[in-house]
C-alpha cells in the first residue's frame, strides 16, 4: 500500500493581478523523503512555499495529511529586528514551555551557547540554526526550509547540511527545501522538482549525483541542469 502523502497539490495556481505566478502545479511530498525545489529567480519557488504555509490565496487543491505537523524556517527574519528577543525566548514562542527541552534542542542544532544572545545579533548561519531548532521543537512530520543556506559560506553550508542529514537520520522527518546549490541537491535529495511557474521536470538525482562528469560539466551553480527526470508538458527553460 502506498504511503499517504504529507501534502498533495493538484492544479495549484497562484495569480497576482493578471500575472500567473504558479501555473497548475501538481506534486506530492511523501513521509520521510527529502524533496528539493530548484528553479531560476522569479520561478515562483517562494510563492509555492507561501501557498503551502497558507500565506497566499490559491486555486486548485492542496491537501495536507490529517494532523500534519509542519516545521518551517523562513529565508531570514526581517532585517534589523527592533524587538528585544533572546534566542531562548524565541524558541519558547513556538509554544514549548520546558526550558530543558529547549536547551536540548538548541544544543542538538549546535546553538547551545547562543541561548542568551539577542536574535538581532546572530550571524546568518547562527540564525538558520536557531530557526531550525524552533522548527524542530514542534516535532514536525515535515520541515519546509526556504533557502536555508543563503548567505552562508561553504563550510557553514556544509555544516548545515550535515546537521540536517543527522536530524533526518534520527527523526525520519521529511524535508522540503528550496535550494540553489546543485551539489547538495545531488547529495541530499531523494527527489528534485524543477519549477518555472509550472513544474518543468522532476525525478531522482541519485544516478546523476554519482557521475563525476556531470558535476564537472555543470558545476555547483550552473542553473537548472537536466537531472534524471521525465518531462511533463512543455518545458521552456533554456
Amino acid at each position: 500500500m502506498p504511503k499517504t502523502p504529507l501534502i498533495a497539490a493538484k492544479g495549484l495556481t497562484v495569480k497576482r493581478g493578471k500575472r500567473v505566478l504558479l501555473d497548475s502545479v501538481d506534486f506530492e511530498i511523501l513521509p520521510g523523503e527529502a524533496l528539493t525545489l530548484i528553479g531560476p529567480n522569479g520561478a515562483g519557488k517562494t510563492t509555492l512555499i507561501r501557498a503551502l504555509i497558507g500565506m497566499v490565496p490559491f486555486s486548485g487543491s492542496l491537501i495536507r495529511r490529517k494532523g500534519l505537523r509542519l516545521g518551517y524556517t523562513p529565508q531570514k527574519l526581517p532585517l534589523e529586528q527592533l524587538i528585544p528577543m533572546p534566542v531562548d525566548r524565541f524558541i519558547a514562542l513556538s509554544g514549548e514551555r520546558n526550558r530543558a527541552r529547549r536547551r536540548e534542542m538548541l544544543s542538538r542544532c549546535g546553538a547551545e551557547s547562543l541561548q542568551d544572545t539577542q536574535m538581532a545579533a546572530l550571524s546568518g548561519g547562527e540564525t538558520q540554526r536557531v530557526l531550525l531548532a524552533r522548527a524542530l521543537m514542534r516535532a514536525p512530520d515535515l520541515l519546509i526550509l526556504d533557502e536555508p543556506t543563503q548567505g552562508l559560506d561553504s563550510p557553514g553550508e556544509a555544516r548545515f547540511y550535515q546537521l540536517l542529514s543527522d536530524i533526518r537520520a534520527e527523526t525520519g522527518v521529511a524535508v522540503f527545501m528550496v535550494s540553489h546549490d546543485l551539489h547538495m541537491v545531488m547529495a541530499q535529495s531523494d527527489r528534485v522538482i524543477c519549477l518555472n511557474q509550472h513544474i518543468c521536470c522532476s525525478g531522482t538525482p541519485g544516478v546523476v549525483a554519482e557521475d563525476p562528469n556531470y558535476l564537472q560539466l555543470f558545476g555547483p551553480r550552473a542553473g537548472i541542469a537536466p537531472y534524471q527526470h521525465h518531462h511533463h508538458e512543455h518545458c521552456d527553460h533554456d
Partner: peptide, 18 residues
C-alpha cells in the same frame, strides 16, 4: 501576546505554525 510577538518576528513563521 504570544501571537502578537510571533507576527512581529515573522508573519510567515506564524502562519506556518498555524
Amino acid at each position: 501576546w504570544r501571537g502578537l510577538l510571533n507576527a512581529t518576528l515573522s508573519p510567515e513563521l506564524m502562519a506556518a505554525e498555524g
